[in-house]
């Protein structure tokens, strides 16, 4: 068994008086693919946003690739550079072309020479099959193309871990597949992935394990087949009966 790349121990988080995460314990091993599902407001997004410290947890420990995240963490940027993230709303930079979106962080954060960064950018764009859109601006692309561009942009930083925060929820139905296909390819290439999604088909196809959350707690964590075939908790059964 390879080493745990993400460790969360008794993580608690509050928004004001409201507790969003309750005693979260989660370990993710290198190259593991984990799908996080659950009803809205259950804390799934907050959970993965804590992993690259877009949200700060108040209690407990989060260790990413050997570095503990806390107020004292220096160089949080270095850790973030190794954890890629794809957002529900794409969040491409609208003032830059697609290729510039991809090369911005490699050039300015990793100090990659411009030419090399552009080659890398084109390579990643080809992988998600939108190399022909490289010189357009985000506003000129369809939602599915934008989300694939966002994926390519994250991959240009050559991260060790990829986080997906409901990557297909803002897309028209016919565009969901093209994004999921790109994610499946990435999974096959051996990336460590944590995916918050409602796409159970995707979960069945690529996930090693599924985590089910409700009311800020991890209710159930199981191997994918086990999770769908034989869910243990009543809450999970109810959820699955509603969405499948």
């Amino acid at each position: 068994m390879s080493r745990a790349i993400i460790q969360m121990k008794d993580v608690n988080k509050w928004f004001g008086d409201f507790q969003v995460l309750k005693d979260i314990n989660l370990e993710v091993v290198e190259k593991q693919k984990i799908v996080v599902c659950g009803p809205s407001g259950s804390g799934k997004s907050t959970l993965i946003r804590c992993i690259n410290r877009l949200e700060e947890h108040q209690k407990g420990q989060i260790i990413v690739d050997g570095n503990e995240l806390s107020e004292k963490t220096k160089d949080i940027e270095k850790i973030r550079a190794e954890v890629g993230m794809v957002f529900q709303q794409f969040n491409l930079f609208p003032h830059l072309s697609i290729l510039d979106n991809c090369t911005l962080a490699p050039i300015w954060v990793k100090k990659t020479p411009k030419k090399q960064a552009e080659e890398l950018g084109m390579k990643q764009l080809e992988k998600v099959q939108i190399a022909d859109q490289a010189f357009k601006f985000p506003g000129q692309l369809s939602g599915g193309q934008q989300q694939r561009a966002a994926l390519a942009r994250a991959l240009c930083m050559e991260p060790k871990i990829m986080l997906f925060d409901e990557p297909t929820s803002a897309l028209d139905p016919e565009m969901i597949k093209e994004v999921l296909d790109a994610m499946v390819n990435l999974a096959k290439a051996g990336m460590t992935m944590i995916v918050v999604t409602h796409e159970m088909g995707f979960a069945k196809e690529v996930a090693d394990e599924v985590v089910f959350m409700d009311e800020g707690m991890i209710v159930e964590r199981a191997k994918t087949k086990e999770f769908f075939a034989n869910p243990k908790s009543e809450r999970t059964k109810l959820f699955l009966s509603q969405i499948l």
Binding site: N52, L54, E77, K78, R80, A81, E82, V83, G84, M85, F87, Q89, F90, N91, L92, F93, L104, A105, W108, V109, K110, A150, R153, A154, M157
Partner: peptide, 18 residues
């Protein structure tokens, strides 16, 4: 500006000034 722009910048490893 939507908060997502800040999120995206941070998640790519950019510090405050960059």
């Amino acid at each position: 500006l939507p908060r997502g722009q800040y999120d995206a910048g941070k998640s790519l490893g950019m510090g405050y000034w960059r």
